[in-house]
Nucleic acid binder design. Structure first.
Ligand SMILES: [Mn+2]
Ligand SMILES: [Mn+2]
Ligand SMILES: [Mn+2]
Ligand SMILES: [Mn+2]
Lengths: 218, 218
DNA sequence: ATATATTTTTAGATTAATCTAAAAATACTA
DNA sequence: TAGTATTTTTAGATTAATCTAAAAATATAT
């Protein structure tokens, strides 16, 4: 039996070691889980007992097969539920995360499968994040941050930050998923970028925004 | 903050005091929750502290306003999710209960509202149980157990037992919700009943089955 | 009404998950 | 390389939810 808390730790470890490409440190996990390093140390031991992670004192944590399965399963369910909330219940992309955070822990595998089918086997969630298949394999896509984009034209395909504030600001700028944009000018002074949105509106985008928007060349 | 465990106790208390039309006894709650009377005694005190129930030692428990709100909210969410699972994900009525048992604890009120709308504001769940509105009001319906039915013709509108075994047996007999039946003979010997199903098949139904099937005269 | 049975509560432990404070190990820096 | 800073672990407590065993209250039955 794996508790919801344990599941959340496994997901955090997955997220950190994907990003760092290295074992997850106690402190990184503590930050991600918004808890104390002491609690993390405790929990890691429990997960190691259950053979879900590899762990040597002072050397960080890596997911084992079983732990990875659980982590990617959670991500899969989280993202499928997010698609459900947006596509079927008309929630907006800035409201869904906390609800999906709860829904991802519903146990039934059958449920995930049928939900996937009901939604038409989506490959990406409402934030543009890939939805892993039942084996934990993610679809990759050629995408770069707007701040690093070298081309002329592209479409918004994802966001790197998921905060309500950021997503609502994007809504206001009409920079939602799929939106076609054209680079007009990269401003040296502060790294902001002048773009044309949907072939119409011209807009200056701050560097901070550009660093959180994924573009795919078109 | 009310935990899922506390929510389940409140639901159990609601169920028992509805059926008995009296305060719920410690033992009845323990049976319903599949736990010890000692644990129930503990929990009741905690719920009383939180003003969710009225409780005097040795005298049983009654829900207060707040506790009732939570209990009916849970029942509402449970039954809405059951409708979702059957109508949208094509689960059968004998598989959905344990999944709904988890889904009912997802917090968002907005979610329940939008789910209700998405499902077309259903008034009954896949077992024929009424779905309360946001204020906890149930729709009542003239229905009797088949074993007590005096009329000639009627339709199956609900079940009193929800076990997988019973529901699958009903599927086999084609006695699903909405099915029209006609009483042909009440057998004195063992209380079983000979009926015609959908104007076609003739079948003998045991007294035990008849005691768990709700009929509405047609 | 008194003895017996049943129900309910209390006492005392246990387990998961958390915390703060302090100790131990490792990393960084002059 | 020594000294300081940072990270990680351990120690010791706390809280929710559970358990078994035993005590206390209530109900039932002769
Ligand atoms: Mn999310
Ligand atoms: Mn997402
Ligand atoms: Mn149910
Ligand atoms: Mn039901």
């Amino acid at each position: 039996m794996v508790s919801s808390t344990e599941e959340n730790y496994l997901k955090a470890i997955f997220k950190i070691s994907e990003k760092e490409n290295a074992p997850a440190s106690t402190n990184a996990i503590a930050t991600e889980m918004k808890t104390s390093a002491a609690s993390v140390s405790d929990m890691i031991k429990r997960l190691a007992e259950k053979e879900l992670v590899s762990y040597e004192k002072w050397k960080g944590v890596t997911l084992k097969e079983g732990g990875k399965k659980i982590a990617t399963g959670l991500i899969r369910k989280h993202r499928l539920w997010e698609v459900f909330l947006v596509d079927k219940l008309n929630f907006s992309w800035d409201e869904i995360h906390p609800i999906a955070e709860e829904l991802e822990h519903i146990k039934s595998d059958e449920l995930a499968m049928r939900l996937d089918e009901f939604l038409g086997f989506p490959k990406f969630d409402p934030h543009g994040d890939p939805i892993p298949d039942e084996n934990g394999n993610f679809t990759f896509r050629k995408q770069v941050l707007l701040s690093e984009f070298k081309g002329q034209k592209g479409n918004i395909v994802g966001v790197d930050e998921h905060s309500t504030q950021f997503l609502q600001y994007l809504d206001r700028l009409e920079l939602t998923l799929g939106t076609p944009i054209e680079i007009l000018e990269k401003i040296e002074y502060d790294g902001s970028i002048r773009i044309r949105i949907k072939g119409r509106t011209e807009q200056i985008i701050s560097n901070k925004v550009a660093q959180n928007l994924y573009i795919k060349a078109s």
